[in-house]
Nucleic acid binder design. Structure first.
Lengths: 246, 246
DNA sequence: CGTTCTAATATGTATATACATAATCGCCAT
DNA sequence: ATGGCGATTATGTATATACATATTAGAACG
């Protein structure tokens, strides 16, 4: 088991975190099935040789996360799984634009290779410093700007990106062709356009925009972080799915 | 000192919950802006006249929820994205709100049973005319409106909804308990708040909002169509997934 | 036989205390 | 100035303890 995976599962070296992840592990792996009464606090206290407060902290968090249900006098029970994962497709803007029957055009605005700043590392969830490539691009639908793209690429994961100018091909399609992703996270929200975005998208400052941020990992290594900003009128995200088995 | 007087009684009777919701309230309402250093633990200890452990519990939860960032030796700071919660799964707003440590409250605004209009049939993708139930609701986080809900329920698919007033239970949870869904479609976009929404969410007209629309089918029959509108500062959608394995 | 009361029990919250850890400030020597 | 180094400071974690609260098993009673 790799360091990164361990960190992702266990979260930290503290004891209550270990208790928490041990129990999560048992529940998520199915060893403790829904309805099962997990050990009492005083039993876990004995098992881990620690105080009840420490056990309580772990169990409270599990209850908050919805994995267990706590009942006074009765104990704590594994809950029925209740959430369905939705799959949002990794979208290709060219395809979206062409689906609208408009001509697609891509423009690279800026490109900078640099040593990762603290902010870069935060965005990429990168542990150590290293080279990154920062890109700013625009995507047009017909004559109008359709989306603004700000992207960071972790050069430690994708070294060959350092040689690419991205003048003729957008980083999204370029990356998809080269780096298989194993995990992605989307954050979607509405914002008011700041000056920079307003100019890039040719809309009024303060106009509502849809922001889609995505981080992608490949085999536990952060690959890229990207923020797409769309003018409100120009875009609707569609996610259609069926519940998975569970 | 006088802060104790004005403290809202929300999120449960316990003290750490009250501290948590007082601070959430300040952040979500914008009184404490991103970057602001919130009082030190020892200051809050004095203010609430309690132990540091109690304050620590509240602040740790706020950090976990992403509202603040804690830095040793420096203090705790309001984070940039004001709230992120929840996943793109079966939306339960109550859970999102409670994950923020705030008291959840639900309010039904209007309820109308009617023969489906052409617009209704379009929204539900309904072939033939029939009875529908139209609902308008609000969801509160603490004292502030968190989300506005407009919903249509196809009474041909869920007849028993005709008898429910939805005064005490939100239509989402009510439906989940009754109708298994086999397919859903989300549409997500940013809009500027119109007069009606601005009033309902207590924000300025024209302020950016995140709109999540969902249509749900059960065994090919349209069940419900719902539109949630969130004020931009109050919500970020998060969807995390892996393509192949788990 | 059913109801009410009581005691036992597990969790919920809070306390005071202790030491660890990370980041920063300021002093001092180079 | 400046680079290192200890002192300071705020948070992070853990302890033992205490009492509150919800729930239930079982005893006592009508």
């Amino acid at each position: 088991m790799s360091m990164i995976e361990t960190a992702a599962v266990e979260g930290g070296g503290s004891l209550h975190q270990r208790i928490l992840s041990d129990i999560s592990e048992k529940i998520l792996s199915g060893v403790w099935v829904p309805g099962f009464r997990i050990p009492f606090e005083h039993e876990l206290t004995a098992e881990y040789n620690c105080s009840r407060m420490t056990v309580n902290k772990a169990l409270s968090q599990l209850a908050k996360a919805g994995l267990i249900e706590r009942r006074r006098r009765s104990g704590s029970f594994v809950r029925q799984p209740q959430s369905q994962a939705a799959v949002l497709e990794i979208h290709d803007i060219r395809i979206e634009v062409e689906a609208l029957g408009l001509a697609y055009r891509y423009e690279r605005v800026t490109r900078q290779k640099r040593r990762s700043s603290a902010e870069d590392r935060g965005l990429l969830e990168l542990g150590a410093a290293g080279q990154v490539l920062a890109l700013e691009c625009r995507h047009f639908a017909g004559k109008r700007p359709f989306a603004h793209e700000q992207r960071l690429i972790n050069l430690a994961a994708v070294a060959e990106a350092a040689e690419e100018e991205f003048l003729d091909i957008a980083p999204g399609p370029w990356l998809i062709g080269r780096v298989p992703w194993s995990e992605a996270e989307h954050r979607i929200r509405a914002v008011a356009a700041d000056r920079h975005i307003a100019e890039a998208l040719d809309i009024a400052t303060g106009a509502p925009c849809l922001v889609v941020e995505r981080r992608t990992w490949s085999a536990e290594y952060p690959v890229t972080q990207v923020r797409f900003t769309y003018a409100a009128e120009s875009h609707t995200l569609v996610a259609r799915f069926r519940p998975s088995q569970g």
